[in-house]
Simulated assay, not measured.
Amino acid sequence: MEKINFSRNAITTEEELREIIGEPHELVVKKSISFLDEHCKKLISMSPLLFLSTANAEGNCDVSPRGDLPGTINILNKNQLVIPDRPGNKRLDSILNIISNPNVGLVFLIPGLEEVLRINGRATVFNDKEVLEKMSLKGKAPLLGIGIDVEECFIHCPRALKESNIWKPTSWQDIGNVPSIMKIFTDHLKLNGVEVKE
């Protein structure tokens, strides 16, 4: 299929968008709160996986999965939490984005629960040893922390996870035909002119 010019039928104003989609129900608008209440704190404490959305100053976006033991996120108070940044591949996509643009979005998942907790706010990359020590894993504190000043929290409806059947193993596709991650990794390197010896 040849490349499509998306701008040909682009929706460019809220008025155009509302004409197609309509207005949200008042309850949907008012479900958003500006701090971490006891429900939010409970969900965060049970979540082993979150997705961190960032963008740099130019608007280039990234979404990064962050997995850890439930309860590892450090909730400092009703307005702040800290995500540990454990050693990884040193690309630092999220960290570099936050340094140039602090606006972030978080999605917290809990296995078996089809609703997700969404949090929006402003992030700071910091190196406070006292705070980081409290998030040690196997005796090692994270090298950095991502401090989040919470601005908005709300529960997102279950439709996406329900329709995807993500928690139902009987609906999962057979991954036997999927190439290994190493095969994908080396093939992508080859596309960039890098040959990897087997």
Rank of each mutant, 00 (worst) to 15 (best):
N79P: 03
K78E: 13
N177C: 09
F6M: 11
P70F: 03
K90A: 07
L109H: 13
F154L: 12
I175M: 14
P158Y: 05
L76Y: 00
K90C: 11
L81M: 14
V116G: 03
V104T: 02
D62S: 02
V104C: 01
T54C: 00
N60C: 04
C40R: 08
M135H: 08
I33T: 06
G193I: 00
H39R: 15
I11C: 01
E198K: 15
E195L: 12
F154R: 12
I44F: 06
G176E: 10
G147I: 07
V131K: 14
K140D: 10
D93E: 09
L96K: 15
K41F: 13
N5T: 09
L76F: 00
K90Y: 10
S53K: 02
K42V: 03
T170G: 04
L161V: 11
E130W: 10
E195W: 10
N74I: 02
L137Q: 07
V178H: 09
C61N: 09
R159Q: 15
D62I: 00
I184S: 05
D68L: 09
K197W: 09
K140T: 09
F154G: 08
N97F: 04
I83D: 05
C157K: 06
N127C: 10
R122P: 07
G193Y: 03
P48N: 05
P158L: 09
E163S: 07
I98P: 07
P87W: 09
W167K: 12
K134S: 10
S45Q: 08
L27R: 10
L81G: 04
E115G: 03
V194A: 04
G105I: 01
G145Y: 12
N5D: 15
E163H: 05
P87I: 12
A141M: 07
Q173T: 11
S34H: 11
V116F: 02
G176S: 15
I21H: 07
G71N: 05
V178P: 01
R159V: 09
V131P: 06
I83M: 07
D187H: 14
S32W: 11
D85T: 06
N97H: 09
S7Q: 08
V29C: 05
N74R: 10
E151H: 12
R159T: 10
S164N: 04
E151Q: 06
V194W: 10
V82F: 04
V107N: 03
I33P: 06
N60A: 10
N89M: 03
K162T: 12
W172K: 08
E2I: 10
S32A: 13
R118G: 06
L143N: 14
L81V: 03
E163G: 00
P111Q: 05
I99Q: 08
S94A: 10
L191E: 15
S164Q: 04
P24S: 05
D68G: 04
G147M: 15
M1A: 13
L109W: 07
I20Q: 02
I11E: 02
E133R: 14
I155Q: 04
M1S: 15
N101S: 04
P111C: 02
L69T: 11
S34L: 06
E15D: 08
G176P: 05
E14P: 05
R122E: 15
R91P: 03
T54P: 00
K31M: 14
G121I: 00
